[in-house]
Design a protein around this nucleic acid. Sequence first.
RNA 1: GCGGGUGUGGCGGAAUUGGUAGACGCGCCAGACUCAAAAUCUGGUUUCCGCAAGGAAGUGGGGGUUCAAGUCCCUCCACCCGCACCA
Length: 853
Amino acid sequence: MSRYNVKETEAKWQKAWHEAGCFAASEASSKPKYYVLEMFPYPSGRIHMGHVRNYTIGDVIARYKRARGFNVLHPMGWDAFGLPAENAAMKRQVHPAQWTAENIAAMRGQLQDMGLSIDWAREIATCQPDYYRHEQKMFLDFLAANLVYRRESWVNWDPVDHTVLANEQVIDGCGWRSGAPVEKRQLAQWFFRITAFSDQLLESLDGLDRWPDKVRVMQSKWIGRSAGARIDFELAGRAAPLEVFTTRPDTLFGASFCALSPHHPLAAELAKDDPALAEFIAACDRLGTSEEAIETAEKQGYDTGLKALHPFAQGQALPVYVANFVLMDYGTGAIFGCPAHDQRDLDFARKYGLPVPPVVLPPGEDPDRFEIGDEAYSGDGTLFNSDFMDGMAVPQAIAAAIARLEAGGAGRGEVLYRLRDWGVSRQRYWGCPIPVIHCPGCGIVPVPEQDLPVVLPDDIALGQAGNPLAHHPTWKQVDCPKCGGAAERDTDTMDTFVDSSWYFARFCSPHAETAMDRAAVDYWLPVDQYIGGIEHAVLHLLYSRFFTRALKQCGYLGLEEPFAGLFTQGMVGHETYRGPDGGWLSPEEVRRAEGGGFETLDGQAVAVGRSEKMSKSKKNTVDPAHIIATYGADTARWFMLSDSPPDRDMEWTDAGVEGAFRFVQRVWRIVNDGLDGLPAVGTPAPERFDVAALALRRTSHKTVEAFTSHLEKFHFNSAVARLYELSNELGGFAAEHDDDRWAQREAFETLVRLAGPMMPHLAEELWQRLGHDTLLVDQPWPVADPALTRDDVLTVAVQVNGKLRATIALPREAEDDTARAAALAEPAVQRALAGKTPRKVIVVRNRIVNVVA
RNA sequence: GCGGGUGUGGCGGAAUUGGUAGACGCGCCAGACUCAAAAUCUGGUUUCCGCAAGGAAGUGGGGGUUCAAGUCCCUCCACCCGCACCA
């Protein structure tokens, strides 16, 4: 038999699927819907292995669900705005729009070469005015609904990308893209009021039971709810009280000081007349905010001389410090310190010789002897030394303290969140213009709906400092829609995460005149299975959850959670290589050396590093296009699925790809070699099967059962293993009689149909060669016959004192007595007993017999 | 520091949720075919003792529960990821 012609065959079936319109999705269907979505790519120019893994996983699910009788939506689009286009424009003198369009064209071709079951008629790109005009409308609707607002604020400024970053985009104090340390600047910014949904976003996490726990935990930490109380401490000799937030109002009688953040307005005010305090604040600022600085920084404070009056204990006055460990951007920027029950407060109190009165007694401790040493006690217990709270448990005391504060007008219960509103103004060109006009007379005026979209100007000068749109000679100049006077457009564009916060909804009705056709989104949403990288755990995945709620509030759609199921895939890594000079080498620049290991092409020693995520900087990338051109899409897809579980990081290896390629060839050969004399399609089953044929039939049906259940659980590597087993058995199967040939056809078809979602081209080709005039993609998923998946005779393990001594063949559901007798009759069992009488024999039916002596 | 995860042959990884540890693949070894090689096919491959039959040990370390533990409990270690002076 000739070898399988990968190139021709893959192209042939891609064309056939396209011409038959197999993957076109429509709401007009009686089948249940299933929306499979992979995170859409940024059009950087070429697909990378991460894409291949992502889209392979998604495609397996999409094809499988289609076969299972679902009406599947599986679309693709482009997250097309963003900074790289501007950088490329400056570097190569191409317009960002052109650069993006060319990249999209190239990557679309590469994705199509993968043979994905995508409905390409739904393709969208976020940089098209037809897309972002709807985003502008949403912005205005959000504005009207008070979900968008503008304010002056300190922002995270990326000095390399020359733009503002959201809190979520600052990693370890550095910009998420540029890696440059972020600076603080004061700017007027547009904000999305994500905090309006803090509680909802947190509570609904519980219902997302098809999301990884990891992501839910990360989001819940990011939202950071803490329930407690806001307390007003009267300050002796001052009118305004000091506002403090605490989660432990129960420990108020243990308070021994108050502390302000160095950036607290009161600290700044006091510093005006107190040079020493001013110097202390300056010293705190110099310390920096890096991890090491925080970790090693000693608790330091400066006594302002102010006295805060205890809200409960008459006449008790607490010293007020400015302290370096109090953060201005959490709570009120001020705390009361309870050293006995908070470690930081304790460290501080010990340093400055402040009292440490304990007020929570751990269970079993003697109140007269209990003392705090070097460790604060933050656990549960019973209140003491606490007046009206004495004897209460902590939760009860918290409630009592809040009630007393509220009664006395000294504070109130409050819930605080770490989550901050989402600043979306970006001082960039290649993004969605913010549809707002600034009028000297009327202030902020929304662009009237009939004037949308506000389109980006084509002629733009990039590369100067500052905001490109602001530099444009005419673009920003408009008449005020309200008063008609001269006014200016907002020259910022929106964070590109806004674009990706609703694209999944646009896919439901990509050509609708409005942002989304209500019937279409009602039908398709939520996304049943979303697949992407873990890196968006709090960014994109939180923003999209917020956006969906905001869209619901504005009447766009009717649900809150956009993604019912989420799967986070692992990264694709590759070994790293370094040459004699220590520089990184790409896999093409090294070869296997004679005595093992690697060397450069001219024979120099190469240091092999461990597998790391593929990256240009480490030069350990492998180009998927090259792999697909060499081995075909089926091989690339098969390897992606076969080695590691999809949620774990995997290593791309040449040997692995070769192995996958061999299997593709092997399946082709096995089926083709068996075609001659195979019973025709639809031949009725023989009445009897001989032993060999029956065994093969059992394997086929067991494979269907096991493969399907692995697929349902995303255990693709285990599913793959079952196909290897089936093909191994088929490879050694000698068909002699008619019943053998019939069983052989059944096995061939099982192999081909199960392989369909994973290597669709080969499967389609073999389906045809098996004599079918239908398309495999239109076939229903095979069903296992229960009578053939259960063996009549089982192998049961026999242990003596927990150690395996023999295996016995028993009929299914054999009586315990039968099993016991058979086990004891085994010579190996008798030998192990060495004459001892069994004390007890445990029989687990169909599984194991354990003889205890 | 807090939270989450991982730890099984030379390697990637299986193990029906407490019931034959190492499925399947890669690699390696041997054999067949071949003038030869590639490809392909067959067999072997946890470690140790043994020619073998067989035996012993074994899922990061230690302890425990159980007739039975990779799986449950306690404890320690290593690595990875996230958050981090959050009041």
